[in-house]
Simulated assay, not measured.
Amino acid sequence: MVGRTTRILLSFVMVMAASMLGVAAGAGTARADGCYTWGRTLSQGSSGSDVTQLQIRVAGWVTSGERLSYDGQYGARTTAAVKKFQSAYGLAADGVAGPATFNRIYALQDNDCTPAHFTYAELNRCNSTWAGGAVPAATAKANALKTMWKLEALRHALGDVPITISSGFRSASCNSAVGGAAGSRHLYGDAADLVGSPSFCTLARQARVHGFSEILGPGYPGHSTHTHVAFDPSPYWSASSCGI
């Protein structure tokens, strides 16, 4: 695996090279690692699997209570999310995903497509197969990847303060062993329990603007020792001690 420092430096060199060659308006052709390469510039009106790949990486840059769809359609919401991503990383916030945006993403991800500061192992302390949950193993793993990119956005918005995950995907047996709810989102792979610093309330409040539709924290039964975030089709926030 290429070191993250090396990838960041490589991406910087590629952005500078593209600028010098006058190809900044073309598709991002540089490949910073073995995960995914975009072959064209994307903007509002674009559609396709490459748009879906972009949506996975910017879904954590939304407004309060908003959830970005992974539908492969580059609409107004995706444009707004790209703008927020660009602004957060010091890029021109025009909502167009071109070489500079893609190279920033390349610098943020590892060869397995996970964001720089999170791993599949952190999101699955139950078993290595991702099987036994409420959805097929491949779906649970894909859901975990989407969650990690939202957590990467949350982490960056908080000043790149490390965030520790105490629990992610659980099979039915793992969920039962820890006393999890029968319908827990952990069974779907899209949930994470956050501990350590920042404070639980800081995490719960900030999670509201990073695409999480289920947020449970201090004040909610059984959540005094962590903040729980997930992607629930039926949005529900409850952390009364934090004012939400």
Rank of each mutant, 00 (worst) to 15 (best):
P115K: 10
P115N: 10
H117D: 14
F118Y: 13
F118E: 09
T119I: 05
T119R: 11
Y120S: 04
Y120Q: 05
Y120P: 02
A121R: 09
E122C: 07
E122A: 14
L123F: 15
L123I: 02
L123R: 00
N124F: 07
R125P: 00
C126E: 09
C126T: 05
C126Q: 04
N127G: 06
S128P: 00
S128F: 09
T129S: 15
T129H: 10
W130G: 00
W130R: 00
W130T: 07
A131E: 15
A131K: 08
A131R: 07
G132V: 12
G133W: 15
A134E: 12
V135H: 09
P136N: 14
P136Q: 14
T139F: 13
T139P: 01
T139Q: 15
T139Y: 13
A140W: 13
A142C: 11
N143I: 12
A144C: 06
L145N: 04
K146M: 07
K146Y: 08
K146T: 10
T147Y: 05
M148E: 10
M148Y: 03
M148D: 06
W149I: 02
K150F: 02
K150I: 01
K150C: 03
L151R: 07
E152H: 07
A153T: 03
A153Q: 03
A153F: 04
L154D: 00
R155P: 00
R155D: 00
H156V: 08
H156C: 02
G159N: 03
G159Y: 04
D160K: 05
V161S: 03
P162N: 06
I163T: 06
I163A: 04
T164S: 13
T164E: 10
G168M: 05
G168R: 01
G168K: 01
F169E: 01
R170Q: 13
R170T: 03
R170G: 03
S171F: 02
S171D: 09
A172P: 01
A177V: 06
V178P: 00
V178I: 11
V178D: 04
G179C: 10
G179E: 10
G179N: 09
G179A: 10
G180K: 09
A181K: 12
A182L: 13
A182T: 15
G183L: 11
S184M: 11
